[in-house]
Design a protein around this nucleic acid. Structure first.
Length: 333
DNA sequence: CATATAAGCCGCCACG
DNA sequence: AGCGTGGCGGCTTATA
């Protein structure tokens, strides 16, 4: 893929889809692109987002009867696809559009990654892309899905799952969570966070996945010093986690520890510890009634002022604001 | 708010 | 040479 080309995000809206299935990912990627541009993007940085119709017509009628006008029909796409996302999928389409399924099957090997929103997961399954892999779909359909495709491991809890370069998300609004995760993978947490702020979203809603630290990729979890240290750090958050001690714990010299750690995680040890502390603090703010002092204590974030400063630096909101908005948004749902 | 002190980071070079 | 490693010194950054 040419280096100086923006990543092409192709979103396929299935007829009868919820608008949000489509609009969520579209707006996330679009917002990120403009954020990157405002920040002075390098050539090739950012996203080009297009809608591609799976039918013979460019017009797609959504469930609400609102009409989407696609940029192109899928088989007319002539540029390399970075990310392909299938959104929505009324069940009737399964039998009626073998051509699209075939196209999906043929196109999958040529894309960097592929994802689905909601029942779009059926399309991936039908194209044989998910065989033996983990996947998610809308909770109402997960039982049916499992029966229909016994070779696919269906997770019902998370908002989205990833297995290799295949992603699937649970339904409708979770397409947004998926998209933010993809952005985070590409451009890091800060950019994803900015996009979430711009769209007034939370970067990561609480699903069961959030029990894990998002700081490490799955493959980093084993066979790396960062991965081995990670659980230990979580257990000792309230203690002195100076880099010196981390190096000691890993039986390495300070110098080398630093070097290796950066290579593995892409960030320096101290930054990592700080992010970890903030992340755990967020969790306490979200799902506990512990006082600020108690949270600061548990996370090793020093005292109140110190926690506030550090938290602000990462989240761009104060801990109390974060807790408040989080709580009130939960109540209105 | 300024200024002192500690911690973190990293280039450079050396060793096996 | 080509690598993983580690010590030193100085620059940057956060905090009291």
């Amino acid at each position: 893929m040419p280096v100086n080309m923006k990543k092409l995000i192709v979103i396929v809206p299935m007829p009868g889809t919820f608008l949000l299935d489509v609009a969520g990912p579209v707006d996330v990627f679009t917002a990120v692109d403009s954020i990157l541009n405002e920040a002075g993007a390098l050539p090739g940085e950012g996203y080009e987002v297009i809608l591609a119709s799976p039918l013979n017509t460019k017009k797609i009628v959504t469930k609400s009867r609102a009409e989407l006008s696609c940029n192109v029909k899928v088989d007319a796409i002539n540029k390399p696809i970075d990310t392909l996302i299938i959104a929505g999928f009324p069940m009737a389409m399964l039998e009626t559009s073998p051509r699209f399924i075939q196209w999906l099957h043929d196109t999958y090997p040529k894309v960097r990654r592929i994802g689905s929103v909601c029942v779009g997961t059926y399309a991936l399954a039908e194209a044989g892309i998910l065989e033996g892999k983990h996947a998610t779909t809308h909770w109402q359909y997960s039982q049916d899905f499992q029966q229909r495709y016994p070779g696919i491991k269906v997770d019902t809890n998370p908002f989205y799952t990833r297995d290799g370069n295949v992603y699937s998300s649970a339904g409708v609004a979770s397409g947004i969570d998926l998209s933010l995760a993809l952005v985070e993978e590409d451009y890091g947490r800060d950019v994803a966070l900015q996009a979430a702020r711009k769209l007034v979203l939370y970067l990561r809603r609480t699903g069961y996945q959030s029990q894990f630290s998002s700081l490490l990729q799955v493959h980093t979890l084993e066979n790396s010093i960062a991965g081995k240290l990670h659980p230990w750090m979580i257990r000792h958050l309230q203690e002195d986690l100076r880099v010196e001690h981390l190096a000691e714990q890993s039986n390495m010299s300070l110098r080398n520890f630093n070097r290796v750690f950066i290579k593995e995680t892409g960030m320096t040890p101290a930054k990592f510890v700080e992010k970890l502390r903030v992340e755990v603090a967020r969790k306490y703010l979200e799902d506990s009634d512990l006082s600020m002092e108690q949270i600061a204590e548990k996370c090793g974030l020093g005292g109140l002022v110190s926690m506030r400063r550090t938290f602000m630096r990462h989240m761009m909101v104060s801990p109390s604001d974060y807790r408040r908005t989080f709580r009130t948004s939960l109540q209105t749902v």
